[in-house]
Structures are given as structure tokens and as C-alpha cells.
Write a protein that binds this DNA or RNA. Structure first.
Length: 269
DNA sequence: CAGGTCTCCTGCTAGC
DNA sequence: TGCTAGCAGGAGACCT
């Protein structure tokens, strides 16, 4: 599923493909994908807008247009495909952007993804971007910041790592990997973490996400095909979906706040 | 305010 | 073999 590294990869790929393209028309086959504004207004406003730039904030894709920002969250299964006009439209292709020579199709099996079309000014101070915490590489993400954010949290650290308002971009898979590398038990109450443990989380968040971005980037060449992206990072996972950890201890699978969680109780204390 | 639960969706799978 | 109930999961809504 798309987490920060996949979104970063999608962004870089799309930049090579659709920058400076003008949206001549848009077709919305499943209206619920469009969160704001109404579908009619969305279609009316986006017509004749040109893709000036593509950015990323957390797991959000930001398409900068002349007068608006198109924000797109892929959630579980959202993907973008470049297609020809005469390619068959399959049942999971919900939003189709038509350019002069080809089209961009938003594909989403579970229909969880969402799009916003927002006025260009002040997007970072409005929903949905205004409540996002620091990017993993932001200098302001330090031990003191986490201490302040974590001091009243008695929830398990696994749960809190997924809170996008503190650090943005960590998803379920990477949370498990970060905690393994940090040698922290996912059940550990967030407000009991030591400074060293907080520092480990900050460092390993960057390590895990950077590695995933690099691996995703290497396989992105196949992205323009109808097959989509198959990042290689999943071959590098240490605990998530694994039977044994790198030290060959048995991995435990549990549910923490409804999320499948893999960890090693010998390596993670 | 913090935390718990429900909801949205569909493809896949365990179990009969 | 074929059917179905149940599960997975990011994030917002709603409740306590």
C-alpha cells in the first residue's frame, strides 16, 4: 500500500510524464473520491488548468495548477496510470484526466482515496494539510519535540507512530520496521520512552523511509505500464509479514489498536 | 482533550 | 469444488 516512499516515487515519476500538460477534460466515475468541492465544481474549475509542479506533503500528492492545488491521497490502493484514449476503462478507474495526447487515470480498488481541489493560497493552513506534523527529515523533528508531543500519551508507541499530526508519512508497515530497528516493543507506553529511545525513533524513521524511497525509485520504470509500481522495498522488510527476525528469533504477530503488528520480543524491549 | 469504536470498500482466504 | 463470512487497513466522524 502507498506510504510516504511510494508517494514520493509516484510524484517523481509523474513529474517526468505530465508536467506542463493542460487538463482538457476530466471524467469522474465515482464521485466519493472527490472530497471537496462538489463534483460539478471540481470538473468546472479544473478544466484548462495546467500541471505546473507536483509536490508531496506526508502521504499527500500536491498537483500545483495555475489557480488551484489538486490534492490526492492514495490511501490503501490508489494508483495513477498513463493510458491512451482508446485503452479500455476498467471498473476501478475512477477519475480520468484528459491531456492533449494521452490521459492520466486514477485507479483505486477499495475506493478509499480522496481528492481536494483547493484555492492556491494558504493550502498549508487549511484542511487537510493543516494538521500534519513534521516530515521525517525536518530539522525541527528532535527529541524535545517528541517529548512534548508524547508526554501525555499512554497509548502504545506503535499506535502513536501512525499519528500523522506528530510525524507525517509513517504507515503500518514502516512503523513495525522502525520499532524493530529502534529495539522498542510496540506495546511500550509512549510517555515512558527514554531520550535515547526517542532519538532512535527519529534516526530509524529516516533510515527506513530513505531506504524504501531508494528501492521504490529503482523499480519505478515499469510504472507507465498498466501494471503499476512494484517497489522492491518489500524484499527488505525485517519484521513486517516475516516469520523470523534477522537474528532468527520467532516473530510475534498481534493486533494493536486494530492494526496488524509484527515484532520480536527478544530484540524489542 | 485523550482515547475508543465505527465506517468506508473490495479482494482475498479460511473454513465448511 | 464452491460458497460465504470475516478480515485487512488510513483516516475522519462520532461518542465517552
Amino acid at each position: 500500500m502507498p506510504e510516504l516512499p511510494e508517494v514520493e516515487t509516484v510524484k517523481e515519476t509523474l513529474k517526468k510524464q505530465i508536467l506542463n500538460q493542460k487538463i482538457l477534460d476530466v471524467i469522474v466515475n465515482y464521485p466519493n473520491i472527490i472530497e471537496k468541492p462538489s463534483v460539478l465544481e471540481f470538473i468546472k474549475k479544473i478544466k484548462n488548468q495546467t500541471i505546473i509542479d507536483i509536490k508531496r506533503r506526508g502521504k499527500w500528492l500536491l498537483f500545483e495548477l495555475n489557480d488551484y492545488y489538486l490534492l490526492s491521497h492514495l490511501r490503501m490502493e490508489g494508483k495513477y496510470y498513463i493510458k491512451n484514449f482508446n485503452d479500455e476503462v476498467t471498473k476501478h478507474q475512477h477519475v480520468i484526466f484528459k491531456f492533449q495526447d494521452f490521459e492520466l487515470r486514477y485507479n483505486d480498488t477499495r475506493k478509499f482515496g480522496r481528492m481536494y481541489l483547493l484555492n492556491k493560497d494558504n493550502i498549508y493552513n487549511n484542511k487537510p494539510l493543516n494538521e500534519l506534523g513534521f516530515e521525517p527529515w525536518d530539522n525541527k523533528l528532535n527529541v524535545n519535540y517528541l517529548k512534548e508531543k508524547y508526554k501525555n500519551k499512554i497509548l502504545p508507541i506503535k499506535t502513536v507512530l501512525l499519528d500523522q499530526s506528530i510525524i507525517t508519512g509513517i504507515g503500518n508497515i514502516y512503523a513495525d520496521e522502525i520499532l524493530y530497528l529502534s529495539k522498542i516493543n510496540p506495546y511500550k507506553k509512549t510517555n515512558t520512552l527514554s531520550d535515547d529511545e526517542l532519538n532512535s525513533i527519529i534516526i530509524n524513521t529516516k533510515v527506513v523511509l530513505e531506504k524504501a524511497i531508494n528501492l521504490g525509485g529503482t523499480t519505478i520504470k515499469s510504472y507507465t505500464s498498466s501494471e503499476g509500481v512494484h517497489g522492491r522495498f518489500q524484499n527488505e522488510l525485517l519484521v513486517h509479514t516475516k516469520k523470523n527476525c534477522p537474528k532468527n528469533h520467532k516473530i510475534i504477530k498481534v493486533k494493536i489498536n486494530g492494526r496488524g503488528t509484527y515484532y520480536c520480543d527478544k530484540c524489542q524491549k
